[in-house]
Every structure is written in C-alpha cells, then in structure tokens.
C-alpha cells in the first residue's frame, strides 16, 4: 500500500499530455497534426505505411545503382596496354620472351600458323 502510493511513483512529468483526459486528448491530436505525425492512435500493422513512405527512395540509394560498381576492362587487355606504356612489368612475360628468342636462335618455330603445326603435320600423314 505504501509503496504504491509513494510520491516518487506518481507521474507528474508531462501531466495532462499522456493521460486520456478530453482536453489532453484533443491537444495531443492537434500537436500531431501540426508536426505532421499520425494523428489518431494506430496499430503496428498500419504504421508500416509510415515506415515505407518515410524510407529513402530506391533510386537515390547509390548502393543499388549499377554505376556504383563500374565495369573494369578485361585483365588481358589491361596488362598488354599497361606494359606497352611501361607502367606494368611482369617477370614471367619477360622470361617467356627470352625463351622464345632462344628457340628462334636454335632454329625452332615459335607459334606456327594454323594448320602448319606439329599436330597438323601428323594428322596430314594419316
């Protein structure tokens, strides 16, 4: 009995605003109308409309736009072009060039035209 009626438990902050007195009820609705909020008390399902309409539109969300993820040029083309301009260096490419030159010096054919390779010659014999 004493704990329930203790002064610290009596609500006095915002008195008349949260209590459903006739005057307080009308004042609350007027305040909600002024601030552009939901005027009448509404259930949670109906508040979904408020949540949907107040969200950021899809067309302004840049994470959802294709331009946010630009298409990069193909890797092969990038390496060739950058190596041509001297901005890209690959040890493996240099090594393969050296090996090709050595083959040419030894009299071998590097990358023969189509139809004149080793496999084509064997197939021709059949």
């Amino acid at each position: 009995m004493a704990a329930r009626l203790a002064a610290s438990r009596i609500v006095h902050a915002g008195r008349g605003i949260s209590q459903p007195t006739p005057f307080g009820k009308r004042m609350d609705r007027l305040s909600n109308r002024v601030w552009g909020e939901v005027v009448m008390p509404t259930d949670t399902k109906s508040l979904k409309v408020v949540r949907v309409m107040s969200a950021e539109p899809y067309e302004t969300k840049e994470q959802l736009s294709p331009k946010y993820y630009p298409n990069l040029p193909m890797f092969h083309y990038l390496t060739k072009m950058l190596r041509f301009h001297g901005l890209f260096f690959d040890d493996h490419v240099v090594f393969r060039d050296v090996q090709d030159n050595l083959k040419i010096i030894r009299g071998k054919v590097v990358r023969p035209p189509i139809g004149q390779g080793k496999r084509a010659q064997l197939r021709g014999k059949k």
Binding site: T21, F23, G24, R26, L30, V34
Partner: peptide, 28 residues
C-alpha cells in the same frame, strides 16, 4: 513553416479549451 504554424496555433482559442480541468495543468 513549422515555427509559423506553432506561433499562430498558440494564439488560437478552441472551443474545447473549456474542457480543461485541474488534471490538465502542466504542473500539479
């Protein structure tokens, strides 16, 4: 706009202001 609306609404007197009783005061 909101400030203007609040200023003018505060100066209006509604018919239901008569319904105000002691429990509607801001302070006890």
């Amino acid at each position: 706009y909101l400030l203007t609306v609040l200023y003018h609404e505060a100066q209006k007197v509604e018919k239901w202001d008569e319904l105000k009783n002691r429990t509607d005061a801001l302070k006890v």
